[in-house]
């Protein structure tokens, strides 16, 4: 297929995935910010929501003041000044979809095009919580419908695999950043200062990735921060864990290598990262420094993106 087509498919699914992740983070931050401070609301939840989506710096540049619920939601959801705002994500996704319409199935195109049309109905203005949660639901629904239509209607060829690569690269990035912002509440018992006050922070992380029920099924015990970290980093059963993302990246890159008849640097890098995740445990990760582990991971993930780009997308 055309390199440009592969590139657009990759970014199309990345932006849809990013829109959903941001919607989840806004949702979680909202719940936390609404808690009385004695329940563990640590300072400014909106600042950490901005940090988790990687746009705190830009926010500060644009607003020059501490985030409020209004300014943060506006920036994360609607602002044209934020290239990763949900609105921008969906617009860029639709632009990419339009550029590669021939590589999409009718269902995928209709999902993204309908969302783009519907998007015009939402916008700035007063922060109305009812409207906001409608909007966030709409974003999640779009992403689910897009993913579902890809899964159910696309040919299993390189077009499908490149679009999956976009999903998992983006998802791995989002999970790692989310954990990194909250790493101080994910430390083992002897290091914890806040004790049970952090409970709602942990539960917010799980909520942000839709994993509250999964946690209980996997560990069958009350929330423990290091187990939250284990679930999100190392558990391959958890669809948003780093291990699961890399298991998928490895698989789809292998499938591409197989039909093209050639392994490359991207395949080797993904496999190495996945093996590392498989062969460690959460105690080792925490002992080595959770924050260091996560920031190295984010950098490696970016490096994999440029390897994929060099190998296929130019």
């Amino acid at each position: 297929m055309l390199s440009r087509t592969a590139d657009s498919l990759f970014w199309l699914s990345r932006y849809v995935e990013r829109a959903e992740n941001t919607a989840r983070i806004i949702d979680a931050a909202h719940r936390l910010a609404a808690l009385p401070s004695s329940y563990g609301a640590t300072g400014n939840e909106w600042e950490s929501a901005l940090a988790a989506t990687g746009c705190l710096e830009l926010f500060t540049e644009v607003y020059g003041e501490e985030a409020t619920a209004e300014s943060a939601v506006d920036f994360l959801a609607f602002s044209p000044a934020n290239p990763s705002s949900i609105k921008n994500c969906l617009e860029i996704a639709r632009f990419n979809a339009r550029a590669v319409r021939t590589a999409l199935t009718a269902e995928m195109w209709e999902t993204i095009n309908t969302a783009w049309l519907e998007l015009k109905g939402y916008g700035l203005g007063e922060l109305d919580l009812g409207r906001l949660s409608d909007f966030l639901r709409f974003v999640k629904r779009t992403s689910l419908a897009f993913d579902g239509s890809a899964y159910r209607t696309m040919l299993r060829n390189d077009a499908y695999w490149f679009s999956r690569l976009g999903v998992y690269i983006e998802r791995a990035d989002a999970t790692a950043r989310l954990l990194d912002v909250k790493y101080h509440v994910l430390l083992p018992p002897e290091a914890a200062v806040g004790g049970s006050l952090d409970y709602f922070q942990w539960s917010a992380i799980l909520r942000a990735v839709s994993a509250q029920t999964s946690y209980h099924w996997v560990y069958r015990q009350s929330l423990k921060p290091w187990l939250v970290a284990d679930l999100m980093i190392l558990n391959p059963q958890m669809p948003r864990s780093l291990a699961s993302c890399y298991e998928n990246l490895t698989r789809y890159l292998d499938q591409i290598a197989q039909i093209y008849g050639r392994q490359g640097a991207a395949q080797r890098a993904a496999r190495t990262a996945f093996t590392n995740l498989e062969s460690t445990d959460i105690d080792t990760v925490i002992a080595g420094g959770l924050h260091e582990f996560l920031s190295t991971f984010v950098e490696e993930n970016i490096r994999l993106t440029s390897l994929i780009t060099d190998q296929y997308l130019l």
Binding site: M1, L2, S3, R4, A6, D158, F162, Y312
Partner: peptide, 10 residues
């Protein structure tokens, strides 16, 4: 060399 090619992933 006077042949037209397209850039593909392969």
């Amino acid at each position: 060399e006077n042949i037209v090619y397209m850039r593909t992933t392969e």
